[in-house]
């Protein structure tokens, strides 16, 4: 081993990672595309039969797919926007110096660390229409006149799902933004204040532009992950009521394990996620690479 040149030795060290990723990620990606051109369902006795573009043609007529796609876009757009705004607010609070800051930062992290599926059970209890604490608090505050069936009506359920996601992932966004805030030199803020800028102006002219790279990173990762949301919705609503909160991931899962339609599920995945992934990678790669080089 001592005789190997540095790059040969380096490649040897990369081998375990490459094998693991090829087997568990790269091969499955390719197999997914392959499978999407086959019929593998109950008709075919779960044998693979070449079907050409058949699965993709089906997709064009599948209104449930379009509904779930729209739901996914709505969920992603709204929750990621709220998370960025709220995360920015949290980051500003957590960046200030005050007593017990470490403890408060730790508590702010808690939602991020808890298993989504377990907390989804907690949210079904909080959202319960008769005994739920949310309705009770809102009634006492006089915000609503009668209990809302948060998970029982389509529009309420959409917002209930979004709020639970905002709760879970805002800490992640605020940590990324907090790191961005900490990298802004303090004398820069000082200088602009001496120049006579007000706090709001300083924020707009100095903080926000310098925070932009962190915001882009947070936005990218949140968007891609929100687009793939499964566990929260599967446990909280199962996609209901009446498909109002069914995202593409949930629909894919049902195609697999309720309808045993592997080929079609694969086509759904390719049409939705591989396209999204390609767009994201091509758009953001230069920026991400720079981030990594700097980090």
């Amino acid at each position: 081993m001592g005789k190997l040149p540095d790059h040969g030795f380096g490649l040897l060290l990369l081998l375990p990672a490459l094998v693991l990723v090829s087997l568990m990620v790269l091969y499955p990606l390719a197999r997914n595309v392959h499978l999407s051109f086959y019929e593998k369902d109950l008709h075919s006795g779960l044998e693979s039969r070449f079907a050409g573009w058949y699965n993709y043609q089906r997709l064009g007529h599948d209104s449930r797919f379009f509904t779930s796609f729209f739901n996914t876009v709505f969920f992603t757009g709204v929750s990621v926007s709220i998370e960025l705004l709220l995360g920015l607010g949290f980051a500003l609070v957590l960046n200030a110096s005050f007593p017990a800051r470490g403890a408060i930062r730790a508590m702010a992290l808690i939602p991020w660390a808890l298993p989504t599926a377990v907390m989804a059970m907690a949210w079904t209890w909080i959202y319960n229409d008769v005994y739920g604490v949310l309705n009770d608090v809102l009634l006492r505050l006089g915000i609503i006149d009668e209990g809302v069936a948060w998970l029982g009506t389509p529009s309420a359920a959409r917002w209930a799902v979004i709020f639970a996601d905002v709760w879970k992932t805002t800490p992640f966004v605020s940590i990324i933004l907090l790191a961005g805030l900490q990298s802004i030199p303090a004398d820069l803020c000082e200088a602009i204040r001496i120049d006579g800028a007000k706090a709001v102006q300083g924020f707009r002219l100095v903080t926000l532009p310098l925070l932009l790279p962190s915001m882009v990173v947070a936005l990218l990762f949140r968007t891609v992950h929100a687009f793939g949301i499964f566990d929260l919705i599967y446990v909280l609503t199962g996609g209901g009521p009446g498909g109002a909160t069914e995202t593409v991931s949930v629909y894919v899962y049902y195609n697999l394990f309720r309808y045993l339609d592997f080929g079609y599920a694969a086509a759904l995945v390719v049409a939705t996620f591989l396209v999204l992934l390609l767009v994201a990678i091509l758009t953001y790669l230069p920026m991400l690479k720079r981030e990594v080089e700097l980090g």
Binding site: V25, P28, L256
Partner: peptide
């Protein structure tokens, strides 16, 4: 740089993309 690109791309993959082939 190529390895880094692969690493970054894999970091973005949502698990649902891998579910069907991994199940097989």
């Amino acid at each position: 740089p190529l390895f880094l690109v692969i690493v970054l791309a894999v970091a973005l993959v949502p698990p649902i993309i891998l579910l069907i082939p991994l199940y097989e």
